[in-house]
Amino acid sequence: MRLVSHPVLCNYYVTYRCNATCSFCDIWERPSPYVTLDNVRDNLRDLKKLGVRVVDFTGGEPLLHRQLPELLQEAKRLGFITTVTTNALLYPKYADRLRGLVDMLHFSLDSPVAEEHDQSRGVRCFDKVMESIVLARQLGERPDILFTVFDRNIQQIRQMHEEICLPNDLVLILNPVFDYNAVETGSRLSDQALSELSWWGKQKNVYLNEAFIQLRLDGGNHIEAPICKAASTTIVISPENKLVLPCYHLGLKDFAIDGRLHDLYRSDEVQKLVALEGRLPDCEGCVINCYMQPSFAVEMNKYWWKALPSTLKYNWVKGTWKQLV
């Protein structure tokens, strides 16, 4: 049973540029402009009309956009819940200007061991994450630690939890890795690893969407009965000010927005592509977290029930439930 019929999330790519070269990501390899403030203002207005509640200003590295605080201010003025994920290299520079503008601020950290994290990111940034945690806490912010989980680092969850998250009262977000396009990440987590992740998801200050585990146990999205609702739940906007469909990772087609996002999204041409969500050949077996999470939230099925406890837990701890009621 479909509970929500309109998009709830916007993945707004402010740039594809990045100051890191993560081995499990190819976004940083793409040439890219930066979004303009005028285009963002127009698009946020239309996102509001379409029913979107959460705007994820993403990249690349979103803090490379020098006007990110202004973009966030505009989103907050319109009542959106905002989220930013950063490698923290630039956070100390912009922390004061970002204060109070990001509801869900995520610092990416893939290992509690500096050398291992820096190697995975292709740049020395572990120390910047540690510095950013201290600075954010001093400013009254409460960032989350986003931990991309591989088979090779799952044994480090305890150290990350006990030495970094609990002492700073931070939420540890467990993000099971996934393959996409030509990027091979070794994403097939073992059943033992999935079971261990489920256990960790029940611990204090740890967030894991249990539906991610169930979906992997079920072999991912299946095109004959798709779970994925990427295009109908999530609006993807590129740095070139284009609407990307059916999702960023598949990127089958894009449309120039030109100040008409609301009408464009509702157009027959776009809605025909929306109807193909989860049904295209490349959608078979997909487990991409950033599209599955909103998919689980709009239709009452076993994944909705699996996702519910962790969703309630996170929003209660972060206080964002107040903005959702």
Rank of each mutant, 00 (worst) to 15 (best):
S108N: 00
A211M: 08
A307W: 00
V149P: 01
L208G: 08
L189W: 03
C125Q: 11
K322Q: 15
N289G: 13
I235A: 06
D103C: 08
Y303A: 11
E163G: 03
L312G: 10
I235Y: 02
H6M: 06
H262M: 05
K302D: 12
R142F: 00
Y91W: 08
T86E: 03
V287G: 08
I27S: 10
T85S: 14
L68E: 08
P7D: 06
H106N: 12
L139W: 00
I237S: 10
L174E: 01
Q293H: 14
K313I: 02
V149E: 07
S5T: 15
Q138F: 04
S132R: 11
I227N: 05
L174Q: 04
H161T: 05
S267R: 09
E284M: 11
E115A: 14
E115N: 06
V123T: 14
A297G: 07
L105W: 01
L243G: 07
P167E: 08
D46C: 06
V236R: 10
P31Y: 01
L215S: 00
L64E: 02
G220S: 10
I81L: 15
F147A: 12
V54C: 01
I213H: 04
T15C: 05
G278F: 07
R53K: 15
D42L: 13
I145F: 01
K242F: 01
Q323F: 13
L217I: 05
T58E: 09
H161L: 06
Y248S: 02
T185D: 04
W304V: 11
R30M: 14
C18N: 09
P112F: 03
A75E: 07
G79C: 08
F80G: 07
A225M: 04
L170R: 00
V317N: 03
Y13D: 09
W199R: 15
T58L: 13
L37V: 14
T234K: 10
S195H: 11
L172F: 02
L47R: 10
E115Q: 12
P246W: 02
L3K: 13
L308N: 00
F57D: 11
I237M: 07
S295M: 12
P62V: 13
L261E: 06
Y291N: 12
L197V: 07
Y207R: 06
A20P: 02
G122N: 06
D46M: 05
C25K: 13
D26W: 02
R99P: 00
A225V: 10
S232D: 09
R66Y: 03
V149D: 02
N39Y: 11
Y91S: 13
E184D: 14
I133Y: 06
S310V: 03
L64Y: 01
F296M: 10
L37Y: 12
N43K: 09
C125P: 00
L3P: 07
L37D: 01
G60P: 04
E131H: 07
Q67E: 15
A307Q: 08
L261G: 05
G259Q: 06
Q67Y: 11
H65C: 01
F296E: 08
F178N: 11
H117Q: 05
A182T: 14
D42G: 01
